[in-house]
Design a protein around this nucleic acid. Structure first.
Length: 712
DNA sequence: CGCTCCGTGC
């Protein structure tokens, strides 16, 4: 030691003076030059490398050191463990730790935080308990960083399934004195708080760990209470505190509280914090304020992958699918790393847009990136394929999943429902229950939708009654809507009326409208008058309902009443959603609006439709004019049927794709009875599968039949 | 030693 230059000695005594990697390497070089590899000094260099997070150098030096000196110093062990742990190499860190113990080195508070972090990341409960025992045994339990790491560990495990009722053994087994603190049968749920209460000193990390732990485990009140207590001890919230509590306001949809936090971040100079910005983006999105999300995103000086993900998710969750895709493309253009979350955020956009080609491309990327086993991604793909009418592909993916939860099951059940496979939907629902997965609110919407689309009244009634009786889920609007739709179509109008009347909350106009539509089909004018009265009470501007009512009067030949309602419609300003169908051909979307003659191929389309009509009539088809609502002559009515948007799209599909190719149409509103009849025959004449997805379900036409079995 | 983003909804 004495032969070392004085400057070198000084540096070795206070190595923190070395601030970067090249300084550390120079020091290392000097040392080797003067002394060769010496255990005690090499350990100093190693700890320097570790502090600078130089993973490769740390591990290399440690391996060299232990070869020359099989009993490396405790400092060397602790350094390499710390470096591996902070690099996220949890298994390696734990491996070194057990070798350290085996070589007889005593662990201490300098190494526990890293070890606890690693076994927390590995989600190894048994190991965590053992380490906690170790902490107690060597008396490090009052160490600040160790305590913080222990709290983080228990906070993370609390979120795990089946955890709440487990008992902590470590408190009982390791040290007799612990019993006085924790007692027998103390649950892990309280462990975070218990460690916190026992800490002799706490810093801002201690508070943030408890706050984040509570927030992540849904204990929102508790989290907010701790924030107040933290402030009382004169610790102002920092960026960690703020990004931990913002998700609470997102969950509560409390944009006012969220805005308060936003203001605070600006006043206290946290504008460039990516964590806070991402949680702000998400908070605004969950409060249906996407513009504000995008505003925050635009103002960010530096953006990471998560900021992009949050923004994409913000758009998609607010039904701005094209906008979401735009940010997804920008993200790729900016060479941001695409993460699993990126895909589970963007795939739902493909699902809602029925963008099968894009969805398939993303599926390919996901497979190549090795993300397919991610349950979020896999279930979003199941949903996407199902919503694009590819039920078999969806089921194939579902079967390939290693684990299922209620979301993945429900996505598939709904997929079956939308595609008219009611029995498969029900059998999958039973499979889910047998699998031990509790159906939730949405699962019941799915199974009721399945029943509704197949007319399974008895089954639906059983599920509807069972959801509150057996699962404690009280039916919401969607469940009532499915039941009303089902009962209405089955002609059980009185039952539907009573069901809606008995609801524990005020039925909105949309629910009554469902029943009103059923009244039209089953020509019950008296009930319809009752229903329209209920509708105008809660929703006086419901034009759609008035239109149906006027048609009900017309069909019943009560023309004066019909005229009276039409005047009301005119006074309120009639806005009808134009019927629109679209088809994807060669990566291009072609949209057709009913009666629209502007497509460049319109002449050809008209020819095809006329030729088809001739052949259809030879096969016994006669136009069904019952759903044509306007006051016009029969010839005009026939002509207007010919120009329905789905027919234009189908004709275009026929002329622009090779014979035999399946035709996929998407339509914004329900198709009329005549189109349904006509497309069945068309599918037989042209020998093609034709799929039409309207706003609520699929029709798969093939060989003159439809998958809905004419019940829709 | 601590923080942010993801899938099912008539």
């Amino acid at each position: 030691m004495s032969s070392l230059p004085r400057r070198l000695n000084a540096l070795l005594r206070s190595p923190t003076a070395v601030r970067n990697g090249s300084g550390a390497k120079q020091l290392h070089g000097q040392l080797v030059k003067h002394k060769g590899v010496l255990s005690v000094h090499t350990a100093t260099i190693l700890s320097l490398y570790a502090s600078l997070n130089l993973l490769n150098d740390s591990v290399l030096l440690f391996e060299v050191l232990r070869r020359s000196y099989p009993s490396a110093t405790a400092l060397a062990w602790k350094s390499v463990i710390r470096c591996c742990a902070s690099a996220g190499l949890s298994e390696v860190a734990i491996g070194y730790f057990s070798q350290m113990l085996a070589s007889g080195k005593r662990p201490d508070q300098k190494v526990f935080p890293s070890v606890l972090k690693s076994c927390t990341l590995l989600r190894d409960e048994k190991l965590c308990e053992a380490i906690h025992g170790c902490v107690v045994k060597v008396g490090s339990e009052e160490d600040l960083y160790t305590g913080n790491a222990l709290m983080n560990m228990y906070a993370k495990f609390h979120g795990m399934a089946g955890f709440e009722n487990d008992e902590i053994e470590v408190f009982d087994e390791m040290h007799e004195s612990n019993r006085t603190y924790f007692g027998r049968g103390c649950s892990r749920k309280d462990s975070v708080r218990k460690v916190f209460d026992l800490m002799p000193t706490r810093d801002v990390v201690s508070w943030n760990t408890v706050i984040a732990g509570n927030a992540q485990n849904g204990l929102y009140e508790e989290a907010m209470m701790m924030v107040r207590k933290m402030a009382e001890t004169n610790l102002p919230p920092d960026s960690y505190t703020l990004s931990s509590i913002l998700p609470i306001f997102a969950e509560y949809v409390d944009v006012n509280k969220g805005k308060e936090i936003h203001g605070y971040t600006i006043r206290h100079g946290f504008q460039s914090d990516v964590f806070i910005a991402s949680s702000l983006i998400d908070m605004y999105a969950k409060c249906s304020r996407v513009e504000d999300s995008i505003h925050v995103f635009r103002l960010m000086p530096h953006r990471d992958s998560i900021s992009w993900n949050s923004t994409i998710a913000a758009c998609v969750q607010n039904a701005m699918f094209d906008e979401g895709l735009k940010y997804f493309r920008f993200m790729i253009k900016h060479r941001m790393k695409l993460m699993p979350v990126t895909f589970s955020s963007i795939i739902p956009a493909c699902a809602h847009l029925t963008a099968l080609q894009l969805g398939k491309q993303l599926h390919g990327y996901i497979t190549r990136a090795g993300f397919i086993n991610n349950i979020f991604i896999a279930s979003s793909l199941v949903d996407m394929y199902a919503k694009c009418g590819k039920v078999e592909m969806a089921r194939h993916l579902l079967n390939g999943m290693g684990q299922h939860d209620m979301v993945s099951w429900t996505a598939m059940i709904m997929g079956y429902a939308l595609n008219g496979h009611a029995l498969e939907a029900i059998s999958l629902f039973k499979k889910m229950e047998m699998d031990g997965v509790r159906p939730n609110y949405v699962s019941f919407i799915a199974v009721l939708t399945a029943c509704s689309h197949a007319g399974l009244v008895t089954e639906a009634q059983e599920y509807f009654d069972g959801m509150s009786k057996d699962y404690g889920i009280s039916p919401g609007l969607e469940h009532y809507a499915a039941m009303a739709d089902l009962l209405g179509r089955a002609g059980k109008l009185q039952e539907a009326y009573e069901l809606i009347s008995r609801m524990e909350f005020e039925p909105p106009g949309s629910l009554w409208s469902t029943l009103l539509a059923a009244c039209r089909v089953h020509r019950n004018v008296e009930l319809a008058e009752n229903v329209i009265d209920r509708i105008t009470r809660v929703d006086p501007d419901n034009i759609g309902a008035l239109v149906i009512m006027s048609n009900i009067y017309s069909a019943a030949k009560r023309y004066e009443d019909a005229a009276r309602v039409r005047i009301m419609i005119k006074q309120k300003g009639f806005r009808k959603t134009p019927a629109c169908s679209w088809i994807e051909v060669k990566n291009k979307v072609h949209a057709f609006i009913a009666g629209d003659e502007s497509h460049p191929f319109y002449g050809k389309i008209k020819e095809v439709l006329q030729a088809l009509l001739d052949q259809m009539e030879r096969e016994g088809y006669a136009p069904d004019l019952s759903e044509v609502l306007h006051d016009m002559g029969d010839d005009e009515k026939r002509q207007s049927l010919q120009n329905h948007s789905e027919r234009l799209a189908i004709a275009f599909g026929i002329i622009s794709t090779p014979p035999g190719t399946a035709i996929r149409i998407i339509k914004n509103i329900r198709m009329c009875l005549d189109c349904h009849k006509a497309i069945k025959i068309m599918s037989k004449i042209v020998g093609r599968e034709i799929t039409v997805r309207d706003n609520s379900r699929f029709h798969h036409f093939k060989d003159g039949e439809c998958s809905c079995g004419d019940y829709w």
